[in-house]
């Protein structure tokens, strides 16, 4: 009996303790403070940047975080030019990106395509990287640009290429005490373009998106082709990139490579995977045709 009472007391103690943790809404004012909180709560906290994707996880009761860490007050809204490089703070919104100079064309187009002024004023580039399809348009553009992610923790900084960030659906190369604080884009390529197909002309979810970044259309030395919407997170069409390298982009080459853009496609529930694969090829062809027409 005594044991039983002790057990009950321990149980209620635990419930109370959990409830207390669940009372936490944290809005750190500095990156250091945010990193301390991340170290303390690790994966039990929900990190909220713009909230456009993450808040629903709580309201739809998909997760029940021990704490919510909002990055809203961190000084991470910036687009800075550093030599040949561009650094974008993780909480920079699509609207802020659209107002900045020196941003590669494909990223501007991805930011512009985020539907509605309200979403543009709230969706952040850092949050977008974590958002699975049908979100993640800016992530597709960044992937074609060979962007690098700056992860920070109380142990220091770590640079992760975006190409090595996605490990599977909602599984990322980020440690439990780390926060994504900025994104770096190396020397922006001469040509870059992003296109997507949404359900409606204005607004609606992205079905498929393609972003291409390349240094030259006459002799390709550096190329990035990223495809979004077909899989939970965007991927690089590496087969196409290999076929383009060293080549002059011609109509025939566009046609042949287009058949290899859709390496994979998962059923999104919105449209069939066959249609998604078709869309990716069409968007890719449109982009390369447009880029070569300015030759």
């Amino acid at each position: 009996m005594k044991n039983m009472i002790t057990l009950i007391l321990v149980f209620f103690g635990l419930v109370t303790a959990l409830k207390e943790i669940n009372e936490s809404f944290l809005m750190p004012e500095s990156v250091n403070k945010a990193l301390q909180l991340k170290k303390l709560y690790r994966d039990s906290a929900l990190v909220v940047s713009g909230g456009t994707a993450s808040v629903q996880l709580v309201t739809k009761m998909l997760i029940s975080p021990a704490a919510i860490i909002s990055l809203e007050n961190l000084p991470l809204n910036y687009v800075k030019k550093k030599g040949n490089m561009i650094e974008i703070g993780a909480t920079t919104t699509a609207a802020e990106i659209l107002e900045s100079d020196g941003v590669p064309n494909c990223l501007l187009e991805a930011a512009k395509g985020i539907h509605g002024l309200a979403l543009k004023q709230n969706a952040t580039i850092g949050g977008n990287i974590f958002t699975p399809a049908p979100g993640g348009d800016m992530a597709t553009a960044l992937l074609s640009l060979d962007a690098q992610l700056i992860m920070s923790s109380s142990r220091g900084r770590r640079i992760v290429p975006l190409t090595k960030f996605y490990k599977g659906p909602l599984t990322y190369n980020i440690r439990s005490d780390e926060l994504l604080i900025a994104i770096r884009i190396g020397k922006p390529p001469k040509h870059s373009m992003f296109m997507k197909q949404s359900i409606y002309k204005y607004g609606g979810q992205t079905l498929a998106s393609v972003s291409v970044a390349l240094d030259s259309v006459d002799k390709v030395k550096r190329v990035g082709v990223a495809v979004g919407g077909l899989t939970p997170h965007p991927y690089r069409a590496s087969r196409v990139e290999k076929m383009l390298l060293g080549q002059k982009i011609s109509e025939e080459l566009i046609e042949t490579t287009a058949q290899n853009v859709a390496e994979e496609a998962s059923d999104t529930g919105l449209v069939s995977r066959e249609y998604l694969r078709h869309l990716a090829g069409v968007l890719y062809k449109r982009i390369l045709t447009r880029l070569t027409s300015s030759r």
């Binding site: 909230g51 808040v55 004023q121």
Partner: peptide, 15 residues
């Protein structure tokens, strides 16, 4: 003065 979907905003963040 910034647009917010109030369904996607935690009330605690407007303190």
């Amino acid at each position: 003065d910034k647009l917010r979907y109030s369904c996607l905003t935690f009330a605690a963040s407007v303190n």
